[in-house]
Amino acid sequence: MRALLVVNPKATTTTERTRDVLVRALRSQFELEISLTRRRGHATELAAGSAADGVDVVVTLGGDGTVNEVVNGLMASGTGAASRPALAVVPGGSTNVFARALGLPRDATEGTGAILEAMRADRSRVIGLGMADDRYFTFCAGFGLDAAVIRRVERARLRGRVSTPALYLREAVRQYVVASTRHEPSLTLEAPGEEPEPELATAIIQNGAPWTFLGERRVESSPDASFDKGLDVLALRSLRAPGAAWAGLRMLSRRGPRPGQHVVRRHDLSEFSLSAVQPEPFHVDGDYLGERQKVRFLSVPESLRVIC
């Protein structure tokens, strides 16, 4: 069998030692090719090329952004999960939400062992993906507050800061203070067969659970979201009301906010759109994509085979 290892050398916890251990382990089972990413979008090109070249498995060593790029490259080929290379994920970023949502260890060395064991046992699962306009995502997308937080974190990293849970938490508090005092609800959720939900302040879209991790703690906005179902949405009507703070506390408690006066939740949607009065920050899988005024979301079931 042939495998491509895609390494993001700039990922937070990726080291040469981790890479060397992974390379030796993979070479014991595969005809292995190794590629290091050099720029944003490079992993997408590498994955698309490997699919066209008949590679059996693409292994990523990096964070969720690297995984997202590889997934988009794989999805550019074939017409179903069986016609595309399988995906194996070794955690190398700061959060590694997708890998951990699949039940893989957080540590890269342990994750490598788990992936190799799954390969030897021929163990995998086929998962669905989300799609935001023309971009696939594995576990989440965000329109509004959480995307603005990611934008702040990316700017901090450009200034030399290391991506840590503490950095995300600090920037989240700062962004919330700014948004809750200046931001008026401007989003509208529209789904086929439903009345539109206008005047929403921010929205989180999930293809799986949890939404993210704060260190070892799972943060749940839509606990029922699943790789085997459609998309889930959590939206807040206001960032100023006490209900917003209560929703945040429930996310940390792993129960997820309850729908009500301040909270809108939708489960297992096949398609919907979010539009804004003015452009709002937007991200997929923790990768900031700029500001958008409208995004159309689709659930794409049984898209990809994942080794786990």
Rank of each mutant, 00 (worst) to 15 (best):
4 L>I: 14
5 L>T: 08
6 V>R: 03
6 V>C: 04
7 V>K: 03
10 K>H: 04
16 E>L: 01
16 E>Q: 07
17 R>L: 10
21 V>E: 15
26 L>R: 07
32 L>A: 06
32 L>W: 02
38 R>C: 05
39 R>I: 08
42 H>A: 15
46 L>Q: 04
49 G>M: 02
51 A>T: 02
56 D>Q: 13
67 V>T: 14
70 V>N: 04
71 V>R: 02
77 S>T: 13
83 S>E: 15
89 V>A: 05
90 V>G: 06
90 V>T: 05
93 G>Y: 08
94 S>V: 01
95 T>F: 15
103 G>M: 12
109 T>E: 15
113 G>K: 14
117 E>Y: 05
121 A>N: 10
123 R>Y: 07
133 D>R: 11
133 D>M: 12
144 G>F: 06
151 R>L: 11
153 V>R: 01
153 V>N: 03
161 R>L: 15
163 S>F: 08
170 R>G: 00
175 Q>S: 06
177 V>E: 09
179 A>K: 11
182 R>Y: 03
187 L>C: 08
190 E>C: 12
191 A>R: 13
198 P>T: 12
202 T>N: 02
202 T>G: 00
206 Q>L: 14
208 G>Q: 06
208 G>D: 13
213 F>A: 01
223 P>R: 03
223 P>I: 09
225 A>L: 07
228 D>F: 07
229 K>I: 01
230 G>A: 06
239 L>A: 06
239 L>W: 04
255 R>A: 12
256 G>S: 05
256 G>M: 09
262 H>P: 01
265 R>L: 02
267 H>T: 14
268 D>A: 12
273 S>H: 11
277 V>E: 15
279 P>K: 08
281 P>G: 10
282 F>W: 01
283 H>E: 15
286 G>V: 07
288 Y>L: 03
290 G>P: 06
290 G>E: 10
294 K>A: 15
295 V>H: 10
298 L>Y: 15
298 L>Q: 14
298 L>E: 12
301 P>T: 08
303 S>N: 09
305 R>G: 07
307 I>H: 04
307 I>T: 02
